[in-house]
């Protein structure tokens, strides 16, 4: 077990190193941030000075080595735009994104499972057909378009919900959260729905497929033959068994939702990490881009590791490291 863990951590370290090189080279290739940021009235000399002050005049390998050595000291660089440590900037924005991602995932489960269950149990009913048709829409409509339509409908035409931003926040555990205030919840409604739409569709499809499969299995038939109540069959025999794959996929997807809430955050001006990364890419705020991507790699590595560990606990047939 210990050797397995060590092995995995080493692997993770290697992945991070390779990723840092790819990210660094990629960002380097996009262009020079000073060209974009500096005033048009700057003289050539002032431009050179600014470039030198940021260490951008060095050859790329030199910049990369500097970056690595700073990284070993826990320093991911300072944002060019905000002049504060990039890591701090990202961590400050993280709660807003987490709040959105977790709410969206919960919504996906709460809405998706009952709908999927119904569609699976009564596949021929017209309601089921429309649920399934709706889920195809949820899959295929681009989320930026849905976001704009939501704003146009609920904010501009109906005036029910605020169009963007976080609204009032309350402090809990030293961090500002929107879900603790009524105004904040109103602000969360549309971005959460927007972010959850794809997830809901996925959960519906997974649940339905699971129900269709399990309903034909021997133990369900046996339960029926035994004369159990229908509700007990559905909620104990069927639901419990189909939940495992659903939870696995949704859990794994949580990472994706956190890392790529970009579109939703941009449209709803939600001040989370996704909006930060898009703004940073537009103005080539290199340290923030690199730090963000490194952080995301770390997050995926950790999630995958946890999933592997949990599997081995849940399913004794999976042995870690054993050949």
């Amino acid at each position: 077990m210990v050797s397995y863990l060590l092995n995995r951590i080493l692997q993770a370290g290697l992945v991070m190193l390779v990723m840092s090189a790819i990210v660094f080279l990629g960002v380097f290739a996009i262009g020079n941030p000073v060209d974009i940021l500096i005033s048009p009235q700057a003289t050539a000399l002032q431009r050179e000075e600014a470039i030198r002050a940021l260490g951008l005049d060095l050859p790329v390998w030199h910049q990369y080595l500097n970056f690595l050595s700073n990284l070993l000291h826990g320093d991911l660089g300072r944002s060019f735009v905000f002049n504060v440590p990039a890591l701090q900037l990202i961590l400050e924005r993280m709660p807003a994104t987490l709040e959105l991602a977790i709410a969206a995932t919960l919504l996906a489960l709460v809405a998706g499972i009952p709908l999927g269950l119904y569609a699976g149990l009564a596949p021929k009913s017209p309601v089921s057909s429309s649920i399934m048709a709706g889920s195809i829409l949820g899959f295929s409509l681009p989320s930026f378009w849905v976001g704009i339509v939501l704003i146009m409908l609920f904010s501009v035409h109906l005036g029910w919900l605020p169009s963007s931003g976080r609204g009032d926040t309350a402090v809990w555990l030293g961090v500002r959260w929107s879900f603790l205030t009524v105004d904040g919840l109103a602000h969360m409604a549309m971005p959460v729905l927007n972010l959850a739409l794809f997830q809901i569709s996925m959960v519906i499809r997974l649940t339905r497929a699971g129900v269709r499969e399990v309903i034909l299995s021997d133990y369900v038939k046996f339960a029926r033959a035994k004369g159990l109540r229908e509700s007990r069959i559905i909620f104990v025999h069927i639901l419990k068994n189909i939940l495992i794959p659903v939870i696995t996929v949704v859990g794994l997807n949580l990472g994706t939702v956190i890392a790529f809430a970009v579109v939703t955050e941009t449209i709803f001006s939600w001040p989370g990490m996704g909006k930060l990364i898009i703004d940073s890419i537009n103005i080539l705020d290199r340290p923030v881009i690199v730090a963000y991507l490194m952080l995301m790699v770390l997050m995926f590595v950790i999630i995958n590791l946890l999933v592997d560990l949990i599997y081995s606990v849940l399913d004794p047939r999976v042995r870690l490291g054993a050949r």
Binding site: I148, S155, S163, S164, G165, T266, I267, S269
Partner: peptide
């Protein structure tokens, strides 16, 4: 209110936010 996205900014005005 910081709203770098053009469409969001205009929508916020139309919505009266």
């Amino acid at each position: 209110r910081v709203m770098p996205n053009d469409a969001s900014r205009v929508a916020a005005l139309l919505a009266g936010d």
